[in-house]
Nucleic acid binder design. Structure first.
Lengths: 221, 221
DNA sequence: CAAGATAGTGTAAGGTTTACACTAAGTCAA
DNA sequence: TTGACTTAGTGTAAACCTTACACTATCTTG
């Protein structure tokens, strides 16, 4: 038992995990095994421990529940409506994670709950206020494509310009002109040719590129 | 005494309160009356109560400590480093508040602590990690000027274009061309002439404008 | 009524964004 | 082996947006 002179809320982290797969923007949900919302899909997340920072806690939950580690994570927003959890007052610090498409190797989650990727169009009903969190994360992602290099976080080490353009088109839900996209992207000076080529399919092979500064998300323009 | 099966952190809100005064961007600090950091300046804020939402708590603290109410408030970021408070684990949800220059009527704070406005250039040493919070709030404010109508939150009901331009110049720390500023601002279609004039000083009077949609911060291209 | 102060206004040049169509290089099947 | 198919790769002109720049208007005060 832990005692405090004043009441304390519980604090959790929840993580909106995006990836691109099958030409769709998908996000990961976990089937809840216990009450409340038993049997409903929810964002992965859990209680912050007192000896770990918020981001550390989010990464720990991410790994425990999905086996994913070492990915891009950014704090999204903190949700603290009084009644958002029927059990006790729970404040959640929400994070967004972006996963490169080649990294999704979902081993069965350690807690033996079901794990699933859902496209934004066919999200199931979500537990708690998670729909709201997901919507905000999605909105922010779309906005950030325009003024940052966040899209690179979906790319593997090496990629072609067409693959990169696909990511933009999928997230923004709009077609882009091939020439203008290339001109724009190359002018940003954020990617460089690796020298390699990708040959796949019955057509001219594509040059491979890599991100010049992969550890940073740059603000562009 | 309050008991929990698992340990819970304390949760506070801290508020970075900006205004423009004496042609400077200023922010409000409160002198701490007790330990830790007794005698140091700090952001106004305090513990979230279990029956109030985060923003409600922030507004309550704002009013209690400064007498200010009904102003623009937005969530900034949540800080949760393990050792940010020497007493116990404290997670703080930081907010930014923007106050129109005509609203600053700082009655002595109810808690009878000293209250002061500091220009960004001459900030005193701050308690906890408040310097970091202030820096982030400042950076965000500067960024938002470019792509939103947030600057209006510093304006009184009616204002002149020159006064509005002053706000931009003070925050961005750069001079802007008078004609281009007016063209740009009017093209945004966010303010309208009120019909009134401000006559002050020995020169042509200036037309007064007001914000068309004062309750919303619009995202502008 | 002249001096001094801030308000208010247009235009041309430069830069950025958009629209648009053909050639290059590979595979595969006839 | 060659023609059909597929995706990769490339330039230019028009439209639009941004920037630089200087003079007139209207008031107060001495």
């Amino acid at each position: 038992m832990y005692q405090y002179e004043y009441p304390h809320p519980a604090v959790t982290t929840d993580i909106v995990i995006f990836t691109i797969r099958d030409k769709q923007l998908k996000l990961l949900q976990i089937m809840r095994g216990g009450e409340p919302f038993k049997g409903k899909w929810a964002l992965p997340g859990g209680f912050v421990q007192l000896d770990e920072d918020l981001e550390t806690g989010a990464r720990r939950e991410l790994t425990e529940e999905t086996g994913i580690s070492g990915v891009y994570l950014e704090q999204l927003y903190t949700y603290g409506a009084v009644d958002r959890d029927p059990r006790e007052r729970v404040i959640t610090v929400a994070y967004s994670a972006l996963i490169p498409s080649d990294k999704i190797v979902l081993q069965a989650a350690t807690d033996a709950e079901a794990v699933g990727w859902f496209s934004m169009d066919e999200l199931p009903e979500l537990a708690f206020d998670h729909k709201k969190i997901v919507d905000m994360a999605h909105q922010r992602l779309v906005a950030k494509l325009d003024y940052s290099t966040i899209a690179f976080k979906f790319m593997p080490e090496e990629f072609t310009l067409s693959e990169l353009q696909d990511v933009y088109e999928i997230i923004l839900r709009e077609e882009m002109d091939r020439r203008n996209f290339r001109k724009w992207m190359l002018a940003l000076d954020q990617i460089k040719e690796t020298g390699g080529e990708r040959r796949e399919g019955a057509h001219r092979p594509a040059k491979l590129y890599s991100v010049i500064n992969p550890d940073k998300v740059e603000i562009i323009k």
